[in-house]
Nucleic acid binder design. Structure first.
Length: 423
RNA sequence: GGAGGAGUGGCAGAGUGGUCGAACGCGCCGGUUUCGAAAACCGGUAUACCGCAAGGUAUCGUGGGUUCGAAUCCCACCUCCUCCGCCA
């Protein structure tokens, strides 16, 4: 959410931002509704002031005066109730418009419609040269009994999967390695709820848009697609001590995504599943652009370093305007090389929001002058499983169908290679 | 799931229809005093919105309602506590 005063004073800037993001929102309508809102507010508050004034007087008044005043107030009350009703309708529309206003993308964000227009800003690692035709992770994992997709769909439905044997162990190894790796960087680890109340989704910007992408319970709660939702909700409606900023969380949670708009896409394997696990970096920092930028670069670099330590080739892209979410100011995606598809696939997404989320969630701190300020927030994937297995397994495959374990993971896996059990 | 109790400012806690944004205390900030400190004393100490300002409005878990007027009465919901049941 943006500040209404800011929108009013920077209307053209906000309009240009929405256009760059390819997000439709009727800002002129918002301006006229807001004007109505403020006019009504003045009317209502004036009436209430009168009401309060008379109310004070009634106590001390003589019986006749009292009678007269109360009579007058009955009339005023009726008018007031009419105005309040009107205000309610205006506020309803105002709020719908307000939550639809996108945050303004950074100047460095390239123009573009979709992820196809994202700009490559970094390439790392040599792509493996195979003297044989590389297999897909699906084939490799099935051959090594690391995953079972048929039974996955039998039990869990479309996009269902089981990880078993070394597939399960490899997931645990990655979680534990990621834990050790990232906690060296001074994060507070958390295991956070996935079953979360509506208000946290509204606050983090996943609702009211995007309800189709979420699983919903019969109690009106939703299953989160990322630990970001609960982690951001953690401090909602709180005033944080300035000296504790920045807060750095490494949050673990199961993640659930309906993938409502992606029916035909990535139907095979572990790229796109309804249910997965993720370590997520979440930062709440002081409310300046410089802080946001600094931590944004930092969290993104953390994930790059992690991938480098696993020695998997990747590139980093700067997302274009059309590929930014409602609240995001700027976003980097890290994409790992997937030999079986001969392309890069997204593994991480790092974005900052300025005070877009914290304004909705009401997360503040007191600055050095004792003034209340909204914090800034940002987040980035640390590592998702099982998606990381796709590129890990495909890049490390050997001609005999075995898979080498990256050096950094060997101590967590207890071996250097995954291969077929000897008969 | 059943029975009962409770939610007030940073904390603690009064207030059961009107002068209550809210007593008293603690804490915190500033001052007096002091060589310095403690104690004592004096003053201050929520947030948001509207407004150039003066000022106004709202907020006592949340949302409705009753009333000229609600922290206070009524209804619903949420959260917490105690007891019983169930359970990893």
């Amino acid at each position: 959410m943006l500040d209404i005063t800011f929108i009013r004073e920077n209307l053209e800037l906000v309009k240009a931002g929405a256009k760059k993001k390819h997000i439709e929102v009727d800002l002129d309508r918002l301006m006229s509704v807001d004007e109505k809102r403020r006019a009504l507010l003045v009317e209502i508050e004036t009436m209430r002031a009168k009401q309060n004034e008379v109310s004070d007087m009634v106590v001390k008044a003589s019986p006749e005066e009292k009678e007269k005043a109360i009579g007058e107030m009955r009339v005023l009350k009726e008018t007031l109730q009419g105005k309040e009703k009107e205000m309610e309708e205006v506020m309803h529309e105002w709020q719908l418009l307000m939550v639809a206003v996108p945050n303004i993308p950074d100047l460095s964000v390239p123009d573009g419609d979709s992820d196809a227009d994202n700009k490559e800003v970094k390439v790392w690692g040599g792509k493996p040269q195979f003297a044989f035709t590389p297999k897909s992770h699906v084939e490799l994992m099935q051959d090594l009994e690391m995953a079972d997709f048929e039974r996955g769909t039998k039990v869990a439905g479309f996009r269902g999967y089981f990880l078993k044997g070394d597939g399960a162990l490899l997931s645990f190894a990655i979680w534990r390695y990621a834990q050790d790796f990232f906690l060296k960087k001074d994060f507070t680890p958390m295991i956070v709820p996935s079953l979360v109340k509506r208000v946290a989704f509204l606050g983090s910007g996943y609702l009211p848009q995007g309800e189709d992408d979420l699983y919903k319970t019969q109690d009106g709660d939703f299953l989160a697609g990322t630990a970001e939702v609960a982690t951001m909700g953690y401090y909602m409606n709180e005033v944080l001590p300035k000296e504790k900023l920045p807060m750095k969380f490494l949050s673990f949670s199961p993640c659930f995504r309906r993938e409502a708009g992606a029916h035909g896409k990535d139907v095979k394997g572990l790229i796109r599943v309804h249910e997965f696990f993720k370590w997520e970096q979440v930062i709440v920092c002081e409310g300046t652009h410089e802080e946001s930028v600094k931590w944004h670069e930092w969290v993104n670099r953390n994930t790059e370093e992690f991938i480098e330590s696993l020695e998997i080739p990747y590139h980093t892209v700067l997302n274009c305007g059309g590929d930014l979410g409602l609240g995001q100011v700027k976003k980097y995606d890290i994409e790992l090389w997937v030999p079986g598809e001969n392309t890069y696939r997204e593994i991480s997404s790092a974005s900052y929001f300025h005070d877009f989320q914290t304004r909705r969630l009401n997360i503040r701190y007191r600055d050095e002058n004792g003034k209340m300020q909204y914090s800034h927030s940002l987040n980035s994937t640390a590592i998702p499983t099982p998606r990381i297995l796709v590129s890990l397994i495909e890049n490390y495959q050997q001609e005999d169908g075995s898979i080498l374990i990256p050096k950094a993971l060997q101590q967590y896996m207890g071996k250097e290679k995954i291969e077929k059990a000897k008969a």
